[in-house]
Amino acid sequence: MTTDLEGGDWMRGISVQQPHAACLLAGAQTIVNSPRAWSWRGWLLLHAGQQIDRAALRAPWVARTIRGRELPTGAVIGVARLTGCHQDPDGSPPCTAFAQPGAWHLEVSDAQALALPIPARGQPGPWRPTEELVDQVLQQLPNVRP
């Protein structure tokens, strides 16, 4: 199978620590904190990074969300659509419980989990996946299209 557009032309990757990656796939988390704004919009491969945010595991709402879920690391575990990017105004309450003050908040929706995680290397910031990686994802999620 080949994509309509070369891998990376219509999809990007983002590496997110667990348990945040699992919370995104569960729909409980709708933003990803970023040090800079992203102008790009579209499908994202959700890559669970090698590190686990141990402090986040102790938050009650995170614990409820991930209960019974595996927390794979070092793999693409799903996709989501990047729909917007914003910063909370100074002095305002955070947009969600996951929002870090001063960070840019990447707004994601339509998260879909892969049945089988695909081992892969991520990188900081947005990255372009290979055509082979996109094809592996589309074998599991054939309805994801530009």
Rank of each mutant, 00 (worst) to 15 (best):
V137N: 10
A55F: 08
P93T: 09
A113Y: 03
P89D: 10
L133Y: 07
L25W: 03
D88P: 02
V108G: 03
V144Q: 04
P142Q: 03
D88V: 11
R64I: 00
A28W: 00
A111D: 00
A37W: 00
T73L: 11
N143Q: 14
T96D: 14
A26S: 15
R69S: 10
Q18L: 05
H47W: 08
Q100K: 13
A63K: 13
E131S: 15
D135Y: 02
H86Q: 08
Q29K: 15
A55G: 07
A113E: 09
G8I: 04
A115T: 10
L114M: 06
Q123S: 15
R41Y: 13
G42A: 13
L57I: 11
L114E: 04
R58C: 08
I77V: 15
A80L: 04
R69M: 15
A113V: 04
G8F: 05
S34G: 07
C85K: 01
R54N: 03
L5T: 14
A21V: 01
T2V: 09
S109P: 02
V108W: 01
I52C: 12
A75L: 09
Q140R: 04
Q17R: 13
T130N: 04
R36T: 14
A113H: 01
A37G: 07
R12V: 05
G74E: 14
R69L: 14
L141W: 07
A22L: 06
P19T: 12
I66F: 07
A80K: 05
L46Y: 04
W40H: 12
G27H: 10
R121W: 12
Q123H: 14
A113W: 03
I118P: 02
L138Y: 04
M1D: 11
L25D: 01
G84Q: 14
A55V: 12
L114R: 02
M11A: 14
I31V: 15
Q29V: 00
R12K: 15
G27Y: 07
G8K: 06
T30V: 09
A37I: 01
R67D: 15
P94C: 08
P126G: 11
P142I: 02
P60R: 06
S15K: 02
L106R: 00
V108K: 00
T65Q: 06
E131M: 04
R12I: 05
Q112D: 06
I14E: 00
A80Y: 00
I52G: 02
W43N: 00
L24Y: 02
P129M: 07
T96I: 10
P72K: 06
V137G: 05
Q87H: 02
Q112M: 14
C23N: 13
I31R: 00
L71W: 12
Q136A: 15
P119C: 12
I118S: 04
V144K: 03
D110C: 04
A37M: 07
L71I: 12
P35W: 05
V62F: 10
G68T: 10
T30G: 09
L116M: 05
Q87Y: 01
L106E: 00
A26F: 11
A99Y: 07
V144Y: 01
D88M: 01
A75F: 05
T2K: 10
A113M: 03
Q18A: 06
E131W: 03
A103R: 14
G102E: 08
N143C: 03
P93W: 04
A56P: 12
L5R: 14
I14R: 05
P146I: 06
G122F: 03
R12Y: 05
